[in-house]
Amino acid sequence: MKASSSWALRVVRGFARFWWDLLVGDTPELFVAVLLIIGVVALASLTGHDNMLAVILLPTLSVAALGASVHRAWRGLRRR
């Protein structure tokens, strides 16, 4: 009983760690940015009913997030 529960716990921990490493890993800023982008675009699209604004915002904010993350990595590598 104890062995099976510790096995189950290990599997759950391993599963959670896999998803954490996959989605957050060493780029937590991208994870947070995508959640924020979805929130902002949802505000424009779902509540504001502004389709064109949402169409422009989604790729623009994604490019900005990628640029910010690359810039952060560049600064980190320059300090080394």
């Binding site: 989605l23 991208l30 995508v34 994604s62 690359v70």
Partner: peptide
């Protein structure tokens, strides 16, 4: 896919 793709691109 956005998170995954941006990680790869970066």
């Amino acid at each position: 896919l956005l998170i995954f793709g941006m990680q790869w691109l970066r």
